[in-house]
């Protein structure tokens, strides 16, 4: 089963068109949505969460379509948006009390454990939390009602590298269970590179690609050679290149690179930057 199934999703604003998008997140997998600011990542997520009305297309979450068991799907979906929307006067205890009445499967013990792990103080008001602490609280809440699907919009922004690593580790652990899935959008590509099974590139509202991360990384490599050598390769195996006075650096398909050439592995970030420049 697919945790998320998107077909021909469309949304238009003056000056910006999203879609048509087709996207599948298989159950048990983690998909990273990468895109520059304004690419449409947040819009896509808000459409998935039914916060915006779509102009066309269909979305199925956890195997359910429009109007089917909506509340059950919400119980099973944990969400972290780039702004954690608790009232500023709330403290962690009040959050617990409200969430306990909100979710059928609220796990208070797990919540307290996350608070302890993240070092979030008991009596402090939310307005006195740093940005990082707010995100951590949001993540703690999202994980504490036993969700099957996590939808995360820039959940690691504002976190320092140590905490980011811890949080990425938490998300990875979440999918040890094969019925758990994650859709995560970020422009901190290095986090996604560690975590994801699938990578989707979003650029100006269109999906440039959606593929298995390990396939992508093995399909392409970075080639350093002379301009002449690069021109000798078939055009469609070269994805982009940069020239300097001493040679060229290009992204090419690994199987097209000449034997013994100076190649090195590519990172998702480099691939994305090159593809965006191409597009």
């Amino acid at each position: 089963m697919n945790a998320i199934e998107i077909r021909q999703l469309r949304k238009s604003y003056p000056g910006f068109d999203l879609g048509p998008l087709d996207l599948d997140l298989p159950q048990g997998c983690i998909m990273g949505l990468i895109g520059e600011n304004g690419a449409g990542k947040t819009t896509t997520i808000r459409l998935i969460l039914d916060m915006l009305q779509r102009d066309g297309g269909s979305i199925r979450l956890l195997g359910r379509g429009d109007g089917e068991d909506v509340m059950l799907t919400r119980e099973e979906t944990g969400v972290v948006l780039d702004e954690v929307g608790f009232p500023e006067c709330f403290n962690t205890r009040q959050v617990n009390n409200v969430m306990r009445l909100t979710y059928k499967n609220w796990d208070e013990a797990a919540y307290r454990e996350y608070l302890r792990r993240f070092d979030l103080p008991e009596g402090k008001q939310f307005k006195d939390f740093s940005r990082g602490m707010k995100m951590k609280l949001g993540i703690a809440v999202a994980l504490s009602h036993r969700p099957k699907l996590l939808i995360l919009d820039e959940p690691t922004s504002g976190l320092d590298p140590v905490v980011r690593d811890e949080v990425v580790e938490l998300f990875s652990e979440f999918t040890r269970d094969e019925s758990h899935s994650i859709l995560i959008s970020s422009h901190i590509v290095s986090d996604l590179e560690k975590l994801c099974d699938y990578i989707a590139f979003l650029h100006k509202g269109r999906l440039l690609l959606c593929e298995e991360k390990d396939l992508l990384l093995s399909e392409y490599c970075i080639l350093r050679c002379t301009a002449a050598e690069l021109n000798a390769l078939p055009k469609k195996t070269v994805k982009g290149g940069k020239e300097n006075p001493y040679g060229v650096t290009a992204i090419v398909r690994r199987d097209a690179a000449p034997a013994g050439a100076n190649t090195s592995p590519i990172s998702i970030e480099e691939l994305f930057v090159f593809m965006v420049k191409e597009a």
Partner: peptide, 8 residues
């Protein structure tokens, strides 16, 4: 998960 790589 233990190796930190993709399930696929």
């Amino acid at each position: 998960k233990d190796l930190g790589i993709s399930v696929i």
